[in-house]
Amino acid sequence: MSVRCYRIFGGPTGPGWIRRVRIAASVGVTLFALAAAVEVGWLANWYLGAAVFLLIFGVLPALVHLLCSHVRVEPERVVIVRDFGFFRRELEIPRDLIEGAEVASGRVRTREGERKVRWIRVYLRGRGCLPVVVRDAEGLARELGGPP
């Protein structure tokens, strides 16, 4: 059984794609920030250059989170990975604890008003359920065995 990754803010991919994108985003943002800092530092002064570097480089955690946070389905476990570039948070659900999963939807309050959100309920054996938000909710629910 292959490992499949369901991204939180995008479609499903393999783990290799996520690794490559993570490296590309980290290197790309760092190089862009350095180039902008050198340019501004050269033209104006190095305080402004350093400020530009920090302000651009600081978006890296948000970018990595948007591109690379995912739910990884492995044969032995399901891991919810929240990747922030500088740090990472993982929640592991052992596969033998999972009874099934189903898609649920509802409205959540945001600053802009109410928004419709879809998520999946992962049913744990004799332990109720646990909500997981991914873009391809149907695909993940199907892969976890559908409704119990």
């Binding site: 400020a51 920090l54 600081g58 978006v59 955690p61 922030f84």
Partner: peptide, 20 residues
Amino acid sequence: GLVLALVPYSSFVLAGLTLL
């Protein structure tokens, strides 16, 4: 998650503004 991703940015922004 997005709020958490922006937590380190506050530090970068403050340092950046000081340098600015």
